[in-house]
Design a protein around this nucleic acid. Structure first.
Lengths: 211, 211
DNA sequence: TAGATTGTTAATCGATTAACAATC
DNA sequence: TAGATTGTTAATCGATTAACAATC
């Protein structure tokens, strides 16, 4: 479906540009150069121009980029110009933590960008019906139907390692194409599905090398 | 100090090898081939052999790698053959979440690898002295002394964006070389210091592209 | 116009993959 | 010995950087 033309590394940098643009929105000048954006993001100006050129022509030679225009364009490219509903599966320690975290400062940021944590799922009857940070916990058995009904398009996986693959497969079968996976497992991932891994244990272990 | 010879991508893969080796430890055969390790990690056999070759010769031609030996060697390379003390700064929502998360299944895994979450730090007087999941909260003012006293060598940053840079600088000045940063900011990082970023907001935003 | 900065191409760099001689 | 798998080199691939013509 999507042409595999834009490298993932480029996509990963776009939200960073967006963040900086949001921070300085028309602070002083309504215009920003790739050099100034480079300063603020830590990305080289050339790379920023190259990244943007994958999607079109957004700047004016000799002038720079209009901040508000660039924001709109980046939002459009990232599909953040519409509401994106996010579901979280697995309300254990980590899942609950994520819900509470997302409840603070960062939820505002996410919501502003159209990312809404719409529902959480668990198999524990005790938890179902409860709300954490305003997010209702629903029965994981109904995940397929509810993905459709609630129009979820991103799933955060905070389930135990043992069930991660089967929950993942269920979500894929229900049309989910993007995942943020916290489970410490190697998932079998079909083509066309994007999974970002957030594996703290592996991260800490590799940090030990530099310590 | 450390020769900038081994690429970071290689270091990041080593804990994955280690995890798989721990899972299957002498399950059946005491030997594993790069092909089987490749199956289980999702890394190509050739890349595994290349990665390992940065550090020495660990296998036997025509045979494979002795699992227990390889585990020991990988632990040694990653400095996980000794205790590595980890400190967490900023016991807000996210910091608390991380402490509680790390208290479960994953803490066992971390501890087995010698990674100990030794102390947490906050500036809120109310929180100081409390324990979360067995980890005591200490005054952030004493961070420099306590880094030395407690022999902390990795810091997890879960502070608000506004103070992340100054806390980071303090830690660097006290000799910390490895960080796991959850604050949504671009840190100014001196040479020789390693920072892994765990920025959920950016990750979710880039996922929206694929959704 | 003169100065500045983009958009883009070509050169460089680094990481992955393929392939195979060495050898257990 | 024959078969298997490593360790390593060379080829490929992809991403970053440098450079500059186009143009506002």
């Amino acid at each position: 479906m999507r042409k595999r033309k834009v490298p993932d590394v480029v996509i990963n940098r776009l939200p960073l540009y967006l963040r900086v643009l949001a921070e300085i929105d028309a602070e002083q000048s309504p215009i920003i150069s790739s050099f100034e954006l480079g300063e603020r993001t830590g990305i080289t100006p050339g790379q920023i121009r190259k990244d943007l050129s994958f999607f079109g022509v957004f700047g004016k030679q000799g002038v720079g980029y209009e901040i508000s225009t660039l924001r709109v364009e980046l939002c459009r490219i990232l599909h953040l110009d519409r509401v994106v509903n996010v579901g979280l599966v697995g309300v254990g320690k980590l899942g609950e933590a994520f819900l509470r975290y997302g409840a603070g400062r960062q939820r505002e940021v996410l919501n502003r960008e159209g990312l809404i944590i719409k529902a959480a799922f668990d198999q524990d009857q005790q938890k179902i019906g409860r709300r954490i940070a305003g997010v209702e916990i629903l029965p994981v058995e109904q995940l397929p139907e509810l993905i459709t009904q609630l129009r979820l398009s991103i799933i955060i996986l905070t389930v135990p390692a043992g069930v991660a693959q089967s929950v993942f497969d269920t979500c894929v079968a229900s049309g989910i194409k993007a995942f943020l996976n916290f489970a410490p497992v190697k998932l079998q991932i079909p083509a066309g599905i994007r999974v970002h891994h957030a594996d703290f244990t592996l991260q800490l272990e590799s940090l030990a090398y530099y310590s």
